[in-house]
Design a protein around this nucleic acid. Structure first.
Lengths: 110, 110
DNA sequence: TTATTTGTTTTAAATTTTAAAATAAATGAT
DNA sequence: ATCATTTATTTTAAAATTTAAAACAAATAA
């Protein structure tokens, strides 16, 4: 089983966090804020499609809304497999970030 | 400023952890244990070289040892820039993994 | 009907990852 | 001495991922 890539992790976590508002442009906005830089549209939509194809996400298309430009949105939701994959990276992160020795370079993680 | 990729993060953390034993094959062994699967040699050496070129790592070549096959090793050490980059991904991980709502899929990170 | 807004898709280049083969330099065995 | 084995790094090419930009689609506003 392969670990999620960085972007895949960020996108799955964004879907988790955004709950009922997890669709492409909103995910992009959310992650842009967290990263402190503008993500391109493709940087989100391309991996979203891949994650769905691999069964980490499910999706459904909404009805259009009556706002200006309010097209149908494709909403995403984590699958059990998606949660599992997140659990795996989390476990690796736990292992790698724990018990780092002091090497006198000014910072040790909390 | 771009985030470290997953593999870059893992390698920098391995160098940190291994301290005086941070060279290619040892890093590979260490990460293979953590990931629970065999990493190819290139999977470690290729990013190591890139991380050095970008200034996240410094290196020095040891003298050969008197063990069977004990060639000179290239040891790596984190630079201040490397620690900084780790600090950045750590900060993003903090933000993304904190306050995830319960979505009833059987697991919420500690 | 034309412009603007919100949203998704496509595409192609750049970058990263991976596996495999090649190379290098050491000791052990015959 | 020569050959085999071991430890170690380099190179290479294919596959996969990331990214930016352009294209496309469908809605409301003017």
């Amino acid at each position: 089983m392969d670990l999620l890539s960085r972007m895949e992790e960020l996108i799955l976590l964004a879907v988790w966090k955004l709950q009922d508002e997890a669709y492409g442009l909103e995910i992009r906005l959310h992650l842009s804020e967290i990263l402190g830089r503008e993500l391109s549209v493709g940087a989100v939509y391309v991996p979203l499609k891949r994650l769905k194809k691999r069964g980490y996400l499910s999706s459904w298309d909404s009805e259009p809304t009556d706002e200006r430009g309010g097209r149908s949105k494709r909403f995403f939701k984590l699958t059990a497999k998606g949660v599992n994959a997140l659990q795996e990276v989390h476990s690796v992160q736990e292992k790698t970030w724990r018990n780092l020795p002091d090497i006198g370079l000014g910072w040790v993680p909390a």
